[in-house]
């Protein structure tokens, strides 16, 4: 499963894993995000903070007739305006994917899976 592009010289395949990693990287740069929630644990109802190495796991890439849809499962910090943080993530992810991979993104869906209260 990969996203294909064609240039004059041949084809370019970008695996979904790459797209997920770039999207995850962009999201974790965003202010207000303290982690990504793993997909596996979502089934179990538990959110887990992921390390950078595997943060693509909080990202699900779907493709429907050439349209790219991205679902992101995030954990935000308590005391931020969550709607705004989510919106920032959407615009940042869209921008980074277009800039780095040249992909047009149909939608970036944000699922806020948890809020972390860090202050004692």
């Amino acid at each position: 499963m990969a996203l294909e592009m064609n240039s004059q010289l041949g084809s370019i395949d970008i695996s979904k894993e790459v797209v997920a990693t770039v999207a995850g990287g962009a999201a974790t740069d965003c202010y207000g995000i303290v982690g990504m929630a793993s997909q596996k644990q979502i089934k179990d109802g538990i959110s887990e903070l992921l390390k950078r190495d595997n943060f693509s796991r909080g990202v699900v890439i779907r493709e429907n007739e050439g349209d790219l849809m991205i679902d992101m499962y995030i954990i935000v910090s308590y005391g931020t305006k969550i709607s705004e943080v989510a919106y920032n993530v959407q615009s940042k992810v869209k921008y980074q994917l277009e800039k780095l991979l040249g992909l047009q993104v149909e939608s970036v869906n944000i699922f806020v899976q948890g809020v972390r209260v860090s202050n004692p």
Partner: peptide, 18 residues
């Protein structure tokens, strides 16, 4: 600030003053 936070910098600003 928190309620009116807009954009990345707005959110950061709200946290700074929080």
């Amino acid at each position: 600030l928190l309620m009116g936070a807009r954009g990345n910098s707005g959110v950061i600003l709200s946290q700074l003053f929080r």
